Measured scan of single mutants.
Amino acid sequence: TDVTFHVNGRNLHLKGADEELLRRIEELIRRGADIEELEKAVKEWEK
């Protein structure tokens, strides 16, 4: 799945995201995470 999140005026584009990653990103956004936290979560998922 390709999806782009718009967070605090910045874009986080995910290519090939699975349901697990999407749920994790949505949860972080609900908690008020900043873009750096979201990018870190994506990097951890990519490993």
Results as ranks from 00 to 15, higher is better:
residue 1 T to Q: 12
residue 1 T to Y: 15
residue 1 T to H: 12
residue 2 D to N: 04
residue 2 D to W: 05
residue 2 D to G: 03
residue 2 D to K: 03
residue 2 D to L: 04
residue 2 D to A: 01
residue 2 D to P: 01
residue 2 D to Y: 04
residue 3 V to N: 04
residue 3 V to P: 15
residue 3 V to R: 08
residue 3 V to D: 08
residue 3 V to Q: 04
residue 4 T to Q: 09
residue 4 T to F: 06
residue 4 T to W: 06
residue 4 T to D: 15
residue 4 T to E: 15
residue 4 T to V: 14
residue 5 F to Q: 13
residue 5 F to K: 14
residue 5 F to C: 15
residue 5 F to L: 15
residue 5 F to S: 13
residue 6 H to L: 13
residue 6 H to G: 02
residue 6 H to V: 15
residue 6 H to R: 04
residue 6 H to W: 06
residue 7 V to H: 04
residue 7 V to Q: 03
residue 7 V to K: 02
residue 7 V to P: 08
residue 7 V to G: 02
residue 7 V to M: 02
residue 8 N to L: 03
residue 8 N to I: 01
residue 8 N to W: 01
residue 8 N to E: 04
residue 8 N to R: 03
residue 8 N to Y: 02
residue 8 N to F: 02
residue 8 N to M: 04
residue 8 N to G: 09
residue 8 N to D: 10
residue 8 N to T: 02
residue 8 N to K: 05
residue 9 G to M: 02
residue 9 G to A: 01
residue 9 G to P: 00
residue 9 G to S: 02
residue 9 G to F: 01
residue 9 G to D: 05
residue 9 G to Y: 01
residue 10 R to K: 14
residue 10 R to T: 14
residue 10 R to S: 14
residue 10 R to C: 13
residue 10 R to Y: 11
residue 10 R to F: 12
residue 10 R to P: 02
residue 11 N to W: 14
residue 11 N to A: 15
residue 11 N to L: 15
residue 11 N to H: 15
residue 11 N to K: 13
residue 12 L to Y: 05
residue 12 L to M: 05
residue 12 L to W: 09
residue 12 L to V: 04
residue 13 H to Y: 09
residue 13 H to C: 07
residue 13 H to L: 07
residue 13 H to E: 09
residue 13 H to K: 06
residue 14 L to E: 00
residue 14 L to K: 00
residue 14 L to F: 04
residue 14 L to Y: 01
residue 14 L to D: 00
residue 14 L to A: 01
residue 14 L to C: 01
residue 15 K to W: 06
residue 15 K to I: 13
residue 15 K to N: 06
residue 15 K to V: 12
residue 15 K to R: 10
residue 15 K to T: 08
residue 15 K to P: 04
residue 15 K to F: 10
residue 16 G to K: 06
residue 16 G to L: 05
residue 16 G to A: 08
residue 16 G to C: 09
residue 17 A to M: 03
residue 17 A to T: 04
residue 17 A to Q: 03
residue 17 A to C: 15
residue 17 A to K: 03
residue 17 A to L: 04
residue 18 D to G: 11
residue 18 D to E: 07
residue 18 D to W: 01
residue 18 D to A: 11
residue 18 D to S: 15
residue 18 D to M: 03
residue 18 D to Y: 01
residue 19 E to L: 09
residue 19 E to W: 08
residue 19 E to Y: 08
residue 19 E to G: 09
residue 19 E to T: 10
residue 19 E to N: 12
residue 19 E to I: 11
residue 19 E to F: 09
residue 20 E to H: 12
residue 20 E to N: 14
residue 20 E to D: 13
residue 21 L to Y: 02
residue 21 L to M: 08
residue 21 L to K: 02
residue 21 L to A: 03
residue 21 L to I: 15
residue 21 L to V: 08
residue 21 L to D: 01
residue 21 L to H: 01
residue 22 L to F: 04
residue 22 L to V: 15
residue 22 L to C: 05
residue 23 R to M: 09
residue 23 R to V: 10
residue 23 R to Q: 08
residue 23 R to G: 08
residue 23 R to T: 08
residue 23 R to H: 11
residue 23 R to I: 08
residue 23 R to P: 01
residue 23 R to Y: 08
residue 23 R to W: 06
residue 24 R to L: 12
residue 24 R to W: 14
residue 24 R to I: 10
residue 24 R to C: 09
residue 24 R to Q: 13
residue 24 R to E: 10
residue 24 R to M: 12
residue 25 I to F: 04
residue 25 I to E: 00
residue 25 I to W: 01
residue 25 I to L: 09
residue 25 I to Y: 00
residue 25 I to C: 08
residue 25 I to K: 00
residue 26 E to K: 13
residue 26 E to R: 14
residue 26 E to F: 08
residue 26 E to V: 14
residue 26 E to T: 09
residue 26 E to H: 11
residue 26 E to W: 10
residue 26 E to A: 12
residue 26 E to Y: 09
residue 26 E to L: 13
residue 26 E to Q: 08
residue 27 E to F: 10
residue 27 E to V: 07
residue 27 E to I: 09
residue 27 E to G: 11
residue 27 E to A: 12
residue 27 E to K: 07
residue 27 E to M: 10
residue 28 L to M: 14
residue 28 L to Y: 05
residue 28 L to G: 04
residue 29 I to V: 06
residue 29 I to M: 06
residue 29 I to P: 00
residue 29 I to Q: 02
residue 29 I to L: 06
residue 29 I to G: 01
residue 29 I to E: 01
residue 29 I to H: 03
residue 29 I to N: 01
residue 29 I to W: 08
residue 29 I to D: 00
residue 30 R to K: 12
residue 30 R to C: 14
residue 30 R to Y: 08
residue 30 R to G: 11
residue 30 R to M: 11
residue 30 R to N: 09
residue 30 R to I: 09
residue 30 R to V: 10
residue 30 R to P: 01
residue 31 R to E: 13
residue 31 R to P: 00
residue 31 R to M: 13
residue 31 R to K: 13
residue 31 R to H: 13
residue 31 R to I: 10
residue 32 G to K: 03
residue 32 G to L: 04
residue 32 G to E: 04
residue 32 G to C: 03
residue 32 G to T: 03
residue 32 G to Q: 05
residue 32 G to F: 04
residue 32 G to A: 03
residue 32 G to W: 02
residue 33 A to C: 14
residue 33 A to W: 10
residue 33 A to L: 09
residue 33 A to G: 04
residue 33 A to Q: 07
residue 33 A to T: 07
residue 33 A to R: 07
residue 34 D to L: 06
residue 34 D to F: 07
residue 34 D to E: 12
residue 35 I to A: 02
residue 35 I to G: 02
residue 35 I to Q: 02
residue 35 I to S: 01
residue 35 I to H: 03
residue 35 I to W: 13
residue 35 I to R: 01
residue 36 E to V: 07
residue 36 E to M: 07
residue 36 E to H: 07
residue 36 E to C: 07
residue 36 E to L: 08
residue 36 E to S: 06
residue 37 E to C: 07
residue 37 E to Y: 07
residue 37 E to W: 05
residue 37 E to K: 08
residue 37 E to G: 08
residue 37 E to I: 10
residue 37 E to R: 09
residue 38 L to G: 00
residue 38 L to S: 01
residue 38 L to K: 00
residue 38 L to C: 10
residue 39 E to H: 07
residue 39 E to C: 09
residue 39 E to D: 05
residue 39 E to K: 06
residue 39 E to T: 07
residue 39 E to P: 00
residue 39 E to V: 12
residue 39 E to A: 05
residue 40 K to F: 13
residue 40 K to L: 14
residue 40 K to I: 14
residue 41 A to M: 09
residue 41 A to R: 07
residue 42 V to Y: 03
residue 42 V to A: 07
residue 42 V to F: 03
residue 42 V to N: 02
residue 42 V to E: 01
residue 42 V to C: 04
residue 42 V to L: 07
residue 43 K to G: 11
residue 43 K to L: 12
residue 43 K to W: 12
residue 43 K to C: 09
residue 43 K to Q: 11
residue 43 K to E: 13
residue 43 K to R: 11
residue 43 K to H: 13
residue 43 K to S: 13
residue 44 E to V: 08
residue 44 E to R: 08
residue 44 E to H: 10
residue 44 E to P: 02
residue 44 E to F: 08
residue 44 E to T: 08
residue 44 E to C: 11
residue 45 W to P: 03
residue 45 W to V: 05
residue 46 E to Q: 10
residue 46 E to Y: 14
residue 46 E to D: 13
residue 46 E to H: 09
residue 46 E to S: 11
residue 46 E to P: 13
residue 46 E to N: 12
residue 47 K to A: 10
residue 47 K to R: 12
residue 47 K to D: 11
residue 47 K to L: 11
residue 47 K to Y: 11
residue 47 K to F: 10
